[in-house]
Design a protein around this nucleic acid. Structure first.
Length: 420
DNA sequence: TCTGGGGTCCTAGGACCC
DNA sequence: TCTGGGGTCCTAGGACCC
């Protein structure tokens, strides 16, 4: 049996944990650069505010209805996420953190110990008590069905946040009520095609011919069909597999045309990407650089520049990664367009010592690289941005907008809530 | 004026190998 | 006249997830 637990309206719920004055009021959280609405409280959803809507299109509406808006505060969300995950890990023999607000629990060996329904409520109550966040719990014999159960737990209030889907009859009943697009793994494109083939409900999909699904779509969707029928095809990732790429990219707070500023931003992204690489304990050979204009900018032609470079010896030294990034940048720079976004992608990962340095390689290992990186990382761990390369520049006019940022209540001393 | 960021997996097609 | 079969690796693009 699998359980999928996720926090309702995670970002907005976290924001209101420390703001009792906002309880019961409409609240939204917007994406980086204060771009799109990415989390809505129940009250905000009731006002009809759609997911993913650009903030500027709704700012009048939000003001009229007194909706509280917050910029994304990832320091806060990550810390609260950790608290929830720690509880979940204590409640099941095996867990997999699936995203910032959800986790899979593998319930092997618990069948005789607990009733699923009671256990679901127990875990929900505990998270509520210890974090003031509300969990949705879906329990079923396959991961896809557990996802569906979780969807039902959120959609129908009378479930009280916990749905157990062990009974095949109950599974079919629920599948007949849900749309194919509500299935995990079926996005907008595939659901449109399924609808055109006459499959509207989840039950239609579950009853579909697996050979046909494989032929017309892919093995991925075939697995989904089998999972809906109660045949497990997916399993928990017991040891989180090593990442295959690391991306660090941002939209600019303003459009950027100056070469220096794009270069500085890339330097900053390269630093962050390199730090992430070291957190993963990996080394990379390939560095990709990109920058592009906005697809919404009507002022000029859409322009997207991208290039990459592979070195012989895997590295995780920030200096090497900046050097490679900037050398690619010089090759692909194009003057004129108003750039809206840029980023760095690291790929082709190795563990330490896999490849030997070649005599003629352009990038040779640097003396004391390890020690220097360790000092940098430990300083930046205690305070993000404590130490950085001058290539980033100082003014940073390109930095993203976060004009409605809440305090980092749980991770910064100066932001600790005060109780009077 | 203002439209996010970070991932994964699969497939098809081309180049190349024996 | 007649020109195979089986495999790998890489890349781009498409789809999905949160």
């Amino acid at each position: 049996m699998f359980a999928l637990c996720d926090v309702n309206s995670f970002y907005t719920s976290v924001e209101t944990v420390f703001r009792p004055d906002l309880w019961g009021k409409p609240v939204v959280v917007v994406s980086n650069n204060d771009g799109c609405i990415i989390s809505r409280s129940a009250e905000a959803k009731a006002l009809g505010i759609p997911m993913g809507a650009p903030l500027f299109k709704f700012s009048d509406f939000l003001r009229q209805h007194g909706v509280q808006v917050f910029s994304s505060n990832y320091a806060l969300y990550a810390d609260m996420s950790l608290r929830v995950m720690t509880i979940l890990e204590e409640m099941a023999p095996k867990t997999e953190v699936y995203s910032i607000d959800e986790a899979w629990l593998f319930l092997q060996g618990m069948e005789k110990l607990v009733g699923w329904q009671e256990w679901g409520h127990e875990i929900r109550n505990r998270v509520q008590r210890e974090t003031h966040l509300t969990l949705g719990v879906g329990i079923a014999p396959t991961m896809t069905l557990a996802k569906l159960a979780n969807y039902a737990a959120k959609r129908w209030r009378k479930t009280d946040g916990v749905v157990v889907l062990t009974d095949p009859e109950r599974q079919r009943k629920l599948m007949a009520l849900a749309n194919v697009s509500d299935v995990w793994g079926v996005g907008s494109r595939i659901s449109k095609r399924l609808n055109a083939m006459g499959m509207k409900t989840v039950l239609d999909l579950a009853n579909a011919d697996t050979h046909l699904i494989r032929k017309k779509f892919s093995v991925v969707l075939e697995r989904t069909v089998r999972e809906l029928r109660g045949e497990p095809c997916l399993a928990l990732e017991e040891t989180p597999s090593a990442r295959q790429q690391i991306v660090c990219s941002r939209s600019y707070g303003v459009k950027v045309t100056a070469k220096d500023e794009v270069r500085q931003s890339l330097c900053a992204f390269a630093e962050r990407a390199a730090a992430k690489l070291r957190e993963e304990g990996q080394f990379c050979r390939c560095v990709t650089v990109f920058f592009r204009t906005s697809g919404y900018d009507t002022g000029g032609e859409y322009c997207s520049r991208q290039g990459s470079m592979t070195c012989q010896v895997p590295t995780h030294d920030t200096r090497d990664i900046i050097k490679m990034a900037l050398s690619v940048f010089e090759k692909i720079w194009l003057s004129g367009p108003r750039y809206a976004k840029a980023g760095i992608i690291l790929g082709d990962f190795y563990h330490r010592g896999v490849a030997q340095p070649g005599l003629f390689d352009e990038i040779q290992p640097r003396a004391n690289s390890e020690a220097l990186m360790q000092v940098m990382d430990s300083l930046n761990q205690s305070r993000r941005g404590a130490l950085w390369f001058a290539g980033q520049g100082i003014e940073k006019p390109w930095q993203m907008k976060r004009e409605m940022l809440s305090p980092a209540y749980t991770t910064r001393f100066s932001d600790l809530p005060k109780v009077r």
